[in-house]
Amino acid sequence: MANYKLEINDIAYEVDVDEGTSLLWVIREHLGLTGTKYGCGIAQCGACTIHIDKTPMRACVLQVQDFSEGQKIRTIEGLSENGDHPLQKAWIASQAPQCGYCQSGQIMQAAALLEENPNPSREEIKSKMNGILCRCGTYLRVIKAIEMVAKNEIPSNS
């Protein structure tokens, strides 16, 4: 057991776990930030997508000791203060989620995509979002939501 300091959503956390513990278990079970989901454990489904220094990564295959040296970790809970990130508004406007389980990963991946490329083509969206699985089949509405933000077309009432 060792003590690790993590900076998540601009808050300093400390956690006592074994070296090698998955960052996903630390975030979810030890720190209670359960918006980030477990889906496969092998970086195939993207449900656990978080940002590390603004880069989208799969928390399930990361180990805690590699991210305790001041890296800035962002989870869905820290994407916006009041759930009002443009993507979150667009997600509501397009009524994208069904079961909702994969949607934190979808939104975090999309946020990183738009940071890097604010006006992606549909092909670029598909290629960058391809790592995030959705079993309910919400892909078309996810694309629609991302395009809404890219084109600045979010309805004001959402």
């Binding site: 930030l33 359960t34 918006g35 980030t36 989870t75 869905i76 809970e77 994407l79 759930g83 979150q88 997600w91 509501i92 009524q95 994208a96 989620p97 909702g100 949607q103 934190s104 939104i107």
Partner: peptide
Amino acid sequence: DIPEKVTGQA
């Protein structure tokens, strides 16, 4: 159910 499904609160 959608608002809390876009913030990770669901």
